[in-house]
């Protein structure tokens, strides 16, 4: 007995499946031509928390801000204090901007942000504070994708991923152009879990960063548990090399001040405060720093932390005061 018969022609199938493809193909052409002829706005793919912060800081580094004190560093520098609060604790003629990022980009990328800022704000910069968590001094490699995102943003290029089939297809169909240039400007993306609860959406986080002069808050709460990380902190040789290259990005007349952000008291070993001072001394030496924030506490009570590397909101408020007190001594 026959199973089934096909009561249509091959051309019917072609029409049914073919016609719906016309619109996507047309859109792909429009997107590529729009991008090539610069009819579309520049790429600004604030599509998740990492890219929102990265792009905010890259944009902020290119704006006329007028800050004379600029912070650079890792996510602990981003999260451990509010630049706005800190400014309030400093003498009134100082303006502060935080250009640290959540996704760790290496020191050359930080130097790039600094160069942008100097170009956009000539003769303004007086102090550059480089704040890193001891975790980063081990010379952790940055995620190549983060560096690629930053570079593509500078180049005005769309975020195509040529390494996967779906990435190539997305690129070919103009989806990266559509998402990065248009959708990201009109459609806020919800953030997940605690970040979502605190900030809501990418655009709201972007607004928060602008209001806090580049700083953010880690909304988590640290709960000490075994096996949360390696506390054998040390300064890697790689960081020493990268540090001296960073120094060269400073404009003449600006001083470089370095500091190390705190760790939870219960997390580190008893000898850590001594190691902290040694690392700070070595780190400042290889950077040829003009000043060292040696009186910053190496540890704080656990209740002030969101994670092993970030302070929480209460911790950030406290740390802004401590940081301001320490920094005042270096401001001319």
């Amino acid at each position: 007995m026959k199973s089934h018969t096909y009561d249509f022609k091959g051309s019917d199938l072609g029409t049914l499946l073919g016609w719906p493809l016309v619109l996507p193909v047309l859109l792909a052409a429009v997107m590529h031509l729009g991008a090539a002829w610069r009819l579309l706005p520049a790429p600004r793919p604030i599509l998740d928390i990492d890219r929102t912060i990265l792009i905010h800081q890259a944009e902020a580094s290119r704006l006329r801000h007028g800050a004379d004190v600029v912070f650079l560093g890792d996510s602990s520098c981003l999260m451990d204090f509010s630049a706005k609060d800190l400014e309030g604790w400093l003498p009134p003629d100082h303006r502060v901007l935080n250009l640290a990022t959540l996704s760790y980009v290496d020191l050359p990328a930080c130097a790039g942000l600094l160069r942008n800022y100097v170009a956009a704000n000539p003769d303004r910069l007086r102090v550059v504070v480089l704040l890193l968590h001891p975790e980063m001094l081990r010379g952790i490699e940055p995620v190549p994708q983060y560096l690629a995102w930053l570079q593509k943003f500078y180049d005005g290029a769309d975020a195509c991923d040529p390494n996967t089939v779906s990435g190539r297809l997305s690129c070919l169909l103009g989806f990266d152009i559509l998402k990065g240039r248009l959708l990201s400007r009109v459609l806020p993306v919800p953030l997940a879990k605690s970040y979502g609860r605190y900030y809501g959406f990418t655009t709201d986080l972007h607004r928060f960063l602008t209001a806090q002069q580049g700083s953010a808050i880690d909304p988590h709460q640290f709960v000490p548990q075994p096996g949360q990380g390696n506390t054998e902190y040390r300064l890697s040789a790689k960081m020493e090399t990268a540090g001296s290259a960073f120094r060269s990005a400073l404009p003449p007349g600006a001083q470089l001040i370095v500091g190390i952000t705190p760790s939870p008291q219960s997390f580190v070993t008893a000898d850590y405060p001594v190691r902290h001072l040694t690392m700070l001394a070595d780190w400042s030496q290889c950077l040829q720093a003009d000043g060292v924030l040696a009186d910053l506490p190496p540890t704080l009570p656990d209740r002030f932390f969101a994670s092993t590397t970030h302070l929480n909101e209460a911790g950030a408020q406290l740390y802004a005061k401590i940081l301001a007190r320490s920094l005042r001594q270096h401001l001319r």
Binding site: M1, K2, S3, H4, T5, Y6, D7, F8, D12, L16
Partner: peptide, 8 residues
Amino acid sequence: DRTLTITR
């Protein structure tokens, strides 16, 4: 149980 016809 039966033969099916698939139409346009």
